[in-house]
Nucleic acid binder design. Sequence first.
DNA 1: CGTCCAGTTGATGTAAATCAAACCCAGTGG
DNA 2: CCACTGGGTTTGATTTACATCAACTGGACG
Lengths: 234, 234
Amino acid sequence: MLSASHRDAKGSVSALAAADPNPTQVDESGLGILDTLGSVVLLTRDATLFREGDAAEFYYKVVSGAVRSCKLLADGRRHITDFFLAGDFIGVEALNTHGTTAEAVNDATVVRYERGMIDALVSRSPRVGRFLLGRVCAELSEARSRMLLLGRMSARERLASFLLRIAARSRRDDRDSIALPMTRSDIGDHLGLTTETVCRTFAELKSAGLIEARSPHDLRVLKRPALAALAQGI
Amino acid sequence: MLSASHRDAKGSVSALAAADPNPTQVDESGLGILDTLGSVVLLTRDATLFREGDAAEFYYKVVSGAVRSCKLLADGRRHITDFFLAGDFIGVEALNTHGTTAEAVNDATVVRYERGMIDALVSRSPRVGRFLLGRVCAELSEARSRMLLLGRMSARERLASFLLRIAARSRRDDRDSIALPMTRSDIGDHLGLTTETVCRTFAELKSAGLIEARSPHDLRVLKRPALAALAQGI
DNA sequence: CGTCCAGTTGATGTAAATCAAACCCAGTGG
DNA sequence: CCACTGGGTTTGATTTACATCAACTGGACG
């Protein structure tokens, strides 16, 4: 079912867990135990992790690379509900089946955990349950902000929001440099725009001096306050 | 803080709970106890139940009437994240503060429950926790479908989706009759459209014979399959 | 009987979509 | 080493769905 290689490798999972960018959060939640329970999955670009409607058997956490989750319409129209970067959990919100399809944006590594084990943990520890509930609530809050964005914001505002969000999440030494692993079309499908509009809007932001681009996938924020104002629709 | 009257009235809450349209669901979840813990709040049209950023002190359940939850941009642009009808829970997803503002669409009655009590319940009973988690997950799934709608669907498709969703939720004897308590502007702010576009699109659906209207707030589905096809973007 | 507000319909404007054509690399292979 | 691909990106011309601006309707209510 998985269009990617995976192997059970407790040792290497622990190694990966040690490289987790924010281990404190995990420990706080009492999820440290997880590190001994996961198995590693290697994904190549565009590989499918799971499909909308699949039984939800696993939770996943991104170790490296990026994953997108999307929904499709019959005629191919696509919406990318979210991007997941290193450290993010995927599939926490699934009840019995997944409501979205998850695919690798680029070559990526994820760890997967048996849902059964997690659910057993939840039954015994309300603390773990609260952690999961917290995650889902945070995602819901995000989703609602994105609904406002999709329903009421201009292309410029959408792109500004997106850039700041990605910048905030992908921890880099330089706060103002932004790595964009996804394509223009992915960004468009996330923001409700076309590839062309995304390009043109990037061009506008550049010529307005708000950002600069070393390459299409490596940007820098030049005027953060102005960008933040745009992102809030001011 | 509440711009509405409320009173502690255990007796009348039980009465209201008895009138709950789907009592089985409540009992299943072990939340029957709630009926003895809530207090009734009477809301007049447009009254505010809570504001975005307010500390989340209560959960609410709609008994009669309708409530909308919305997010605002600095310049007044508004998005209505959802409508809540009789039987729906409000505020379950809040962590510490509310992420949206909740207002009455029309004169409405809601019951409110102290969050502290519910949270205590959750700590003792994983079952109640799972019920809440399930609610939030369902809302997240809804939110994602709406993101697809807002990002990728035409006005006609959005309205068709909306009508079918409302029809499915507001239980009426007649499956095909739809009560719309909210204004055209509310609908527009929910679907990312203007009042005028909502009107025009209703007119299109009418002249295509998919729906008919006794009054602006009382519609009937005439061709459900066609409407459903539209709603799925076919 | 006027006032008000939600709803509707019409005329016009515009942001973004669509259609189309380069362009720019990173591979690949002669 | 250079030509050749092919996928992603960018820029240009045109179209369009929806927004905006504006006027009119019709029921509710004092």
